[in-house]
Design a protein around this nucleic acid. Sequence first.
DNA 1: GTGGATTTTGATTTTGTCGTAATAATCAAT
DNA 2: ATTGATTATTACGACAAAATCAAAATCCAC
Lengths: 110, 110
Amino acid sequence: MPKGSHLGDLEELVLLAVRRLGEEADGGRVREQLSEHAERSVSVSTVYVTLMRLEEKGYARSWKGEPSGTRGGKAKRHYALTPEGVDALERVRAVRERMWDRDGAHATHG
Amino acid sequence: MPKGSHLGDLEELVLLAVRRLGEEADGGRVREQLSEHAERSVSVSTVYVTLMRLEEKGYARSWKGEPSGTRGGKAKRHYALTPEGVDALERVRAVRERMWDRDGAHATHG
DNA sequence: GTGGATTTTGATTTTGTCGTAATAATCAAT
DNA sequence: ATTGATTATTACGACAAAATCAAAATCCAC
C-alpha cells in the first residue's frame, strides 16, 4: 500500500464521474454527475479539491480548454482518467465484488 | 446528507466484512477478512476504532461474548449489521453500479 | 470597471492510521 | 490460591489524510 495511492470514497465517485463523462469532464459537469447520479451533493470547491488530489495521485490528467465566448466564459480545465486511474477503479470494484459475493444470506433485512 | 451518516471507504469495507461473517464477526476476524479478501492490511487498532464508529453511527451493533477458554482467551466483542447498516451498504452499492453502467467505452485503457 | 463563470485558498471536521497502554483470561510455579 | 509470566482483545492518545465549505482570486465578455 504505497503512500498517496489510496482512493477515498469521494475520490472514487469523482473518478467514476470523469470516466463516464469522457473527454467532456470539467468541474461543473462532475458536480452535476455527482448530484444527479450519485446521491452526493457537494459544494463546487469540494469537487475541485478532489480533482486536484486525483491529479496529484496520477489517477487523472487535465488540460486547459478554450474560453467559451459567452459572458463569464472563462476557460475551463478539462479532466480525463489516466490508465492508472482506470486500474485503480477496477481494483476497488473487484474488491467490493469479492466482498459482496458468496451467499449473502446473512443480511439482517426485512 | 444528515451528519454522521456517511460511509468512508474503510467503514464500508468493514461493514462488508461483518456482513459476510454473519454472527461470527469480531475484531480479529474482520481484520482477517480485510487482509485476505479486500487487499487492505490495517493494524488491529484501526479495525476496532472503525467498528466503534460504525456502532455510533447505528450501522452495527455489538454484544459481549464468552471467554474462549484458551490461553489469553479474553471475551470478545461480537458485531453484526443493523438494518440501517444493510441499507447503507445497499445504497452505496446501487450508486456505484449506476455510475459504472452505460457504455463505459470511454476508458483510457490498454 | 462590472458582472458572471470557474478555479484556488484557507480553515475546519471527519476518517483513517498506528503505537502503546489497559484489560482479561490461562498457565506455571510456588 | 496468590503471584507472575504469557497471550488475546480492546481502549486511548496522537497525528496524517480526505472531505468539506465559505470566501477570495481569476478570467472572460460586455
